[in-house]
């Protein structure tokens, strides 16, 4: 029998919560281990691997020169590289750094020692190296992780849905958050999470990033109708989407 694909997990600027989603998968993780061989995964094991990876999952965004070099090396060693979680796929909350001058940010965080901590603009992983698969979410949605893993193992592409969360939410027959008098980023956020938050009574924070071709102007109009200031929307969008500016 062919040996199982060698899989590794790495993290950059992130909370490691997406890896936790994988580690927390429960019994399903045993089934995953039947088909892949995890060779490096700092959150759950001490062993390291010095060879080639068949699949490398990279969590976190790239925020300094050291990280840039490290992710490039991981890319060189990996046949397939997967961006895991919003920090990796779209820069995530780390992108908020890009709204301020880098010098100011360093001083704010490190005070008098800031000169020891050189920094660069926050980047999503694909803005530094080639990414083969994207698993959005903050944190990632376990079923989507498994779907992507199966796609990789079958050698087929995974298409992130190019429509908003509302599509999935409506099929789940949730009472619309706007009917409850709350604001929700569902109408402009990429689907694929099966409206996970709204199913559980929370609003959508837009963690998966703006959907393809969002009607932001139309959405502003909706917010105006609900007496929600436009500024509020801009801030919500910038919370996860700031790095998108670097794509242009």
């Amino acid at each position: 029998m062919k040996s199982k694909p060698k899989v590794a997990f790495f993290d950059f600027a992130c909370c490691e919560g997406c890896q936790l989603q994988v580690a927390n998968m429960g019994e399903l993780l045993l089934e995953v281990l039947e088909i892949v061989d995890i060779v490096e995964f700092r959150e759950i094991m001490s062993e390291k691997w010095d060879g080639q990876f068949d699949i490398a999952f990279v969590e976190g965004s790239i925020t300094d020169e050291h990280a840039t070099e490290r992710v490039k090396k991981i890319r060189e060693r990996s046949k397939i590289l997967v961006a895991l979680g919003s920090c990796a796929t779209i820069g995530g909350v780390n992108g908020m750094k890009n709204s301020f001058p880098l010098e100011e940010v360093r001083r704010y965080v490190y005070g008098e020692f800031h000169k020891f901590f050189p920094t660069v603009e926050t980047k999503a992983v694909h803005q530094v190296v080639k990414v083969d698969y994207f698993i959005h979410g903050c944190p990632i949605y376990q079923p989507e992780f498994l779907t992507v893993l199966k796609c990789i193992l079958q050698g087929i592409p995974y298409y992130v849905p190019e429509y908003p969360v509302c599509v999935e939410c409506k099929l789940n027959e949730n009472v619309c958050m706007y009917d409850r008098g709350l604001s929700c980023m569902g109408p402009v956020t990429k689907a694929g999470c099966n409206s996970w938050c709204i199913n559980n009574g929370n609003i959508c924070y837009g963690c998966r990033g703006l959907t393809v071709n969002p009607n932001t102007e139309g959405f502003k109009e909706v917010l105006r109708k609900h007496n929600i200031p436009e500024d509020f929307l801009i801030k919500k969008i910038e919370m996860y989407n700031k790095c998108k500016e670097l794509d242009k």
Binding site: L28, E31, V32, E34, I35, L146, T147, K150, L153, Q154, Y163, P164, C166, V167, K170, L171, G186, P187, V188, N213, P214, N215, G218, F219, V222
Partner: peptide, 27 residues
């Protein structure tokens, strides 16, 4: 229009569909 597809999801006469395949973890 926000293209959220709510209008078609809730329509009693819409029947457009997509085909998807899923394998289990044994592949």
């Amino acid at each position: 229009c926000l293209s959220c597809g709510n209008c078609t999801a809730v329509c009693p006469t819409c029947y457009c569909f997509d085909i998807a395949e899923e394998v289990d973890l044994t592949l």
